[in-house]
Simulated assay, not measured.
Amino acid sequence: MPPPLHVTIIGAGLAGLATARILRDGNHDITILELLPSNHEVGAALSLGPSAIYLLEPLGFDRKRCRALTAVGSRTYDKEGRQIHYQDMRPFAVANLADWLMMHRVELWEELYRLATAPGHEVGGCGRAARAFCGAEVVGVDVQSGGVRLKSGEVIASDLVVGADGIKSMI
């Protein structure tokens, strides 16, 4: 088995946390750096289709912790409020071996954070827990050395750097 990598994930949003959880299985040394000082997820409902649930559940995803609801149907209305279409969602679950779930974005974030950072015995015994640091402003990445430079002057040595810092990515 190859030695574990020193992985730095820049961004503690949904993508960065999901990446950290997946990489835990390789027993890698994972550091997550987030610019904002704390959980910043906002927004209302979010849906995860069967393909996403099929991938997340083997990683320890707990739909009850997210207070997820199974979508059984979807209705579309016109601007006058008349229903113009109904889609039965149950066949998607059967075809994909997983449900279509609805949840609040912040609760999904909390579950992914738990899967990335909780001790292994709490998430099925998988690898090392990632370390997450909020308020860590990344000012540069040396792609040759893997060094991630913070505004504080600290440089984090990395074998792999993952840019998951959103639509306005500096990475």
Rank of each mutant, 00 (worst) to 15 (best):
L33N: 04
L33Y: 02
E34S: 05
E34M: 05
L36T: 11
P37T: 09
P37K: 06
P37N: 04
S38V: 11
N39F: 10
N39C: 14
H40M: 08
E41Q: 12
G43H: 02
A44W: 04
A45T: 13
S47K: 06
S47E: 07
L48A: 07
L48K: 04
G49C: 09
G49Y: 11
S51L: 14
S51F: 10
S51T: 15
S51A: 14
S51H: 15
S51M: 12
A52H: 01
I53C: 00
Y54T: 11
L55E: 14
L56D: 02
L56F: 07
E57H: 08
E57V: 15
E57T: 15
P58N: 08
P58I: 12
L59P: 02
L59E: 11
L59Y: 05
G60D: 00
F61V: 08
F61T: 04
F61C: 07
D62R: 09
R63E: 10
R63Y: 03
K64T: 13
R65P: 00
C66F: 00
C66N: 01
R67V: 09
R67I: 08
A68F: 04
A68R: 04
T70D: 08
T70P: 06
A71E: 10
G73H: 01
G73W: 02
R75N: 13
T76N: 03
Y77F: 15
Y77D: 01
Y77G: 00
Y77V: 07
D78V: 09
D78Y: 04
G81D: 03
R82H: 14
R82I: 09
I84W: 01
I84G: 04
H85E: 13
H85K: 13
H85F: 14
Q87T: 15
Q87Y: 13
D88H: 04
M89L: 13
P91T: 06
P91F: 03
F92Y: 11
A93V: 08
A93L: 05
A93R: 07
A93Y: 01
V94D: 08
N96W: 12
L97V: 10
A98W: 01
A98C: 05
A98S: 09
A98T: 06
D99I: 07
D99W: 01
W100L: 12
W100P: 01
W100I: 08
